[in-house]
Design a protein around this nucleic acid. Structure first.
Lengths: 112, 112
DNA sequence: TTGACATACCTAGCAACCCGAGGTATCATC
DNA sequence: GATGATACCTCGGGTTGCTAGGTATGTCAA
């Protein structure tokens, strides 16, 4: 998808995924792309700066965990603040989506 | 609503409204705010620059019309290009909304 | 052991976009 | 003649995502 709509959805999605369980950055990217069948095609440049913003704001917390094999990964968890915000962002999506549909589902001018 | 989600929706909404009928700028603002019960609270600074961008790109065309009483208003109409784009943007919203819901409607981690 | 590829992290700079704040002018109402 | 609504416009700042790069490790095959 090539759309400005995705702008602003990034944070909402990250909080939603981390509300399911702790994930590391690269995993978040793959999850988003897989679940949306690449309708959202996230790149590192989209995710990492956003994760760092959220961490700096005390919304998520990163912790390095040794993997079974290979390099350690940086897992992110929601803080208490982040859990609250995740709920708010989810509600915001519902409200936004509803308002958009109110506008978009009106009949167009007759074309016949 | 105080959300970055609205960023990028502006163009989609404008094209949708103008696909219903020609409107002037101030009218678009009032329509959006009324229909969404002020969930979207558009200001002039949001709309006019976007209208000018769209006009410059040949997507909409403005024409001054004398009103019954008072100052002339600048009505905007979709060009052929704009009509096509309006359909694409509407489809984009459907796809985006669907992908977002796929992500957002997953069950969260058990909290009980 | 060399090369290619996936994994996994990161950053800098650019471009796009919305919004707040301000400006101008007309018209109706009081 | 003052106020408020209508109706147009612009500028600058802040936020955000993307492109394009960089580093390093692990795996697999030639």
């Amino acid at each position: 998808m090539n759309s400005e709509l995705m702008r602003g959805a990034t944070e909402t999605i990250i909080l939603k995924l981390l509300h399911e369980r702790a994930m590391y950055g690269y995993e978040i990217i793959k999850q988003v792309n897989e679940r949306t069948d690449n309708a959202f095609a996230w790149k590192e440049g989209t995710l990492y700066p956003c994760l760092h913003r959220l961490e700096g704001a005390g919304i998520i917390a990163g912790e390095w965990r040794e993997g079974d094999a290979g390099k350690p990964r940086k897992y992110y968890l929601l803080t208490h603040k982040g859990t609250v915000l995740a709920g708010e962002k989810a509600a915001e999506w519902t409200a936004f989506s509803s308002a958009m549909n109110t506008l978009m589902l009106q009949p167009n001018k007759a074309t016949a």
